[in-house]
């Protein structure tokens, strides 16, 4: 590796770091909104009566079936035709939140269902209401069971945030691309961008694996 490449990387790094910051911001915000919606959808789609849970099931299936890129394009380029225009940042956050909600609702639902039914019976025999049982017994344990899978999904959403490049949000990939366009050094700058992504995803995956082992120990 020549010193000139390292020098160039050092020159580009601040721009890419700005982009990485924005990527992380988009990811964090989308996860906060998406996970909340995901929990709501998980509870909604667990409703006893089919007509009640049907809308939730439709939302989840559409959200999971639609590619995130299509969702993003639809919101950013499509919705203005219907009179709703969003800036790039909110458009990306809305699209990624919806994708997150749809996917995580299924992960959370599986976690909630893994709570042993004996505990539900005990709560019921104690006279606890259905709402209290969900709030104090099922949700805390269900989320804990779902946590490693949810964190794995969070890493995926961080990677997916690169799609925001397609609507011109100056996140990590966009920054790398504009450096490439100015210098014609696409290979060099994209490798650096890749390293930036890896610097986040590899330690994060490692953390998830550790968390998983720790949670399993207590089962």
């Amino acid at each position: 590796m020549s010193t000139s490449l390292l020098n160039d990387w050092a020159d580009w790094a601040p721009r890419l770091l700005d982009g990485l910051g924005l990527s992380l911001k988009v990811t964090g915000l989308s996860l906060a909104i998406g996970l909340t919606l995901g929990l709501v959808l998980a509870l909604w789609s667990s409703a006893k009566r089919l007509p009640v849970r049907l809308p939730a099931i439709v939302l989840v299936e559409v959200g999971r079936g639609m590619p995130a890129l299509v969702m993003l394009q639809l919101i950013y380029f499509g919705l203005p035709d219907a009179g709703l225009t969003l800036e790039t940042f909110p458009a990306v956050v809305v699209a990624l939140s919806l994708t997150t909600a749809a996917y995580t609702s299924e992960i959370i639902r599986a976690g909630l269902r893994a709570v042993p039914s004996g505990q539900l019976e005990a709560a019921s025999a104690l006279g606890m209401s259905g709402g209290d049982t969900q709030r104090f017994v099922v949700i805390p344990q269900g989320l804990r069971i779902a946590l490693p899978t949810l964190m794995g999904f969070a890493i995926l959403i961080f990677q997916i945030s690169a799609l925001a490049y397609s609507v011109g949000l100056p996140e990590l990939l966009s920054q790398a691309y504009s450096v490439g366009a100015a210098t014609y050094r696409y290979l060099d700058v994209l490798v650096l961008a890749g390293l930036f992504y890896l610097a986040v995803t590899i330690p994060a995956s490692w953390l998830v694996a550790r968390l998983e082992r720790r949670l399993n120990r207590h089962l």
């Binding site: 004996g118 505990q119 019976e121 005990a122 025999a125 805390p140 804990r144």
Partner: peptide
């Protein structure tokens, strides 16, 4: 009416 189960069913968390 209170009830006690074979498998205890305490809330483990």
């Amino acid at each position: 009416v209170g009830m006690v189960f074979q498998s205890f069913n305490l809330f483990p968390h």
